[in-house]
Design a protein around this nucleic acid. Sequence first.
DNA 1: GTGAAAGCGCTAACAC
DNA 2: GTGTTAGCGCTTTCAC
Lengths: 365, 365
Amino acid sequence: MSLGTGDRGTGDDAAQPLARPVRRRGGRPDHTKATISRVADAAGVSRATVSRVMNGTATVAPELAARVRAAAEALNYEPSPVARSLALGRTSAVSLVVPDLANPMFQDVLRGLSHAAALAGHRLLVAESNEIVEEESILAIEARRRSDGLVLASPRVPEPQLRALAERLAPLVLLNREIPGSTVPSLSVDYAAGIREIVHHLLSLGHRHLAYLSGPGGSASNRDRLAALRIAAATGAGFTLTELPCGATFDDGYAAARAAVATGASAIVAYNDMVAFGALSGLHELGVAVPGDVSVTGFDDIPFARYTHPPLTTASIPRNELGRQAWGRLWGLMNGEPGGHNVHFQPRLLVRESTGPAAGTRRVL
Amino acid sequence: MSLGTGDRGTGDDAAQPLARPVRRRGGRPDHTKATISRVADAAGVSRATVSRVMNGTATVAPELAARVRAAAEALNYEPSPVARSLALGRTSAVSLVVPDLANPMFQDVLRGLSHAAALAGHRLLVAESNEIVEEESILAIEARRRSDGLVLASPRVPEPQLRALAERLAPLVLLNREIPGSTVPSLSVDYAAGIREIVHHLLSLGHRHLAYLSGPGGSASNRDRLAALRIAAATGAGFTLTELPCGATFDDGYAAARAAVATGASAIVAYNDMVAFGALSGLHELGVAVPGDVSVTGFDDIPFARYTHPPLTTASIPRNELGRQAWGRLWGLMNGEPGGHNVHFQPRLLVRESTGPAAGTRRVL
DNA sequence: GTGAAAGCGCTAACAC
DNA sequence: GTGTTAGCGCTTTCAC
């Protein structure tokens, strides 16, 4: 057996003259790298036996096994994941495609997913679409091909495309997006419910006029929040809603503070925590007391929310948990389980000190 | 030619009776998936031609190329990255191994690296060691095997092991860690320089007694900062240093505020921004004015540093840039370039409003 | 310009 | 229990 060179194709011996020089075809030559063949040669066994030892499959005579292990050790042999993947038809990796890695939401999802996948011996491939819709599909397909399953977070692709895409991507788990009538599992945050909680809280404090500092135009979650507010306002809950275009950053909130006060609203509902912080800061400079003069709420419960002055009343969302559960679903799909029911994570209202009774109102109850 | 079934090994026909039933070996059966063979069959060309068309290699007769493309389109064909990787000996992916994905530092590095790699058509594999030293080596080796290069961030492994590991991991780029005398490129943050800047700033404000709120025991970066402080203090810079054990979180800083004040120091140097925030909060409650009674500095310039009350004087570090440059180095190595010189990123002092003249001191100049 | 076939490193069905 | 060998899906040399 030729030393160290791949020794397959011996079945051709009958058809091909043995004199035919052994040449390496395809791929670049690599000199000394430890392969299963080398280990097999070194241990004086077949590749199959090495494979069996490395994987603990079947039983190998203790003596042989020891020899194999020794050879592997000596050569610093580590099976090639790529070759295994090809042979096995699975990669032991999953992918995550997100629109924006700078978003704390996705960072936490990444963390939760990575951790959960690692516990199950799987690696994580990440791809960022940078909010570019065309990129998204391409990336998703490619990432999926490199792995055994995909978690697609807040995809921006229009529904028809997404629907078509979903087939090619299975096993697939969707985050913050659903495909009506499809079996693709989806985990999302129920932003509307969070808003309702906030509104309820504010109403119970006697507030009857709310100003909403609206998020970025394209944001789906802003749409959800806004819709929930409008419905609540229109539904006879008994409050007036003033919408103020704002944004998603501290500076946006800061800049909107004056206008918010000018609405005469007794409570400001910010698109997210950052906006709320900005507003808090702006209000402070304007000499408006929080929550004495006006109450402020955020959304997300980012780590800093509890450290502002005053600490921010906000709605927390289980970002990490989203990643963790995404893994659970994906793993299920990968093992042939059905998609199961979609879930809507309910934000939890965290009442801190940025909200209080409406001015001139004695708290009911 | 059998329709759709792999058609290789026909060279065996001479040796094997044709009657031998075609059976699939190895791997699980997959039914209808688009492979290069299927496309070749559909287009009535060889696999080689399909490959050439898909890769734009060599020139293929326009007519054939069109047929191939049509077939590929019709079958929704997408070449298998795994198979390509095996054949080409490269994966078009790189890996990042970090101790802790919850750390903003590593999140930003991840972001920078992912982005830069993506621009060059490479994917990113992430692995988290969870600060477990043994995991680190294993993870690194495995991650490296799945990709073409590795970025190892702040590895915790002892140097001898790291040195040995480095060979097996090449191409490798180290972050915040160097291997003396080795050619493995390393990019790090010069924490000591940041501290020196802070000290210099404080001294120029007339502070002569600094209290250091020390970071976690095991932290290498805390070691660097502390060492820099001690050297400065011992070096005749003319100030007294009091070290206070603290930690890395807001709560740690908060809890340490009283003790810090008790030292009589006119300035508090916090291990990082979070600790500084906590201290700020604690001082506020104690009725200590910042910077009127005591000055406070942070380290890191996390996004919130500019939004505290007062805005925090701190040292900013180019976290994103670290990831971006890591890609640059890695890419260089992957293309046979030498490692190049290590670089120490110098933190930049950001003077904001949490520092001011020492009490009873008129600012010089 | 195009096809045949070897090879990338590994797994697993089969035969002994 | 162990070796032989086909096959995973692709690339690339070589010959035509």
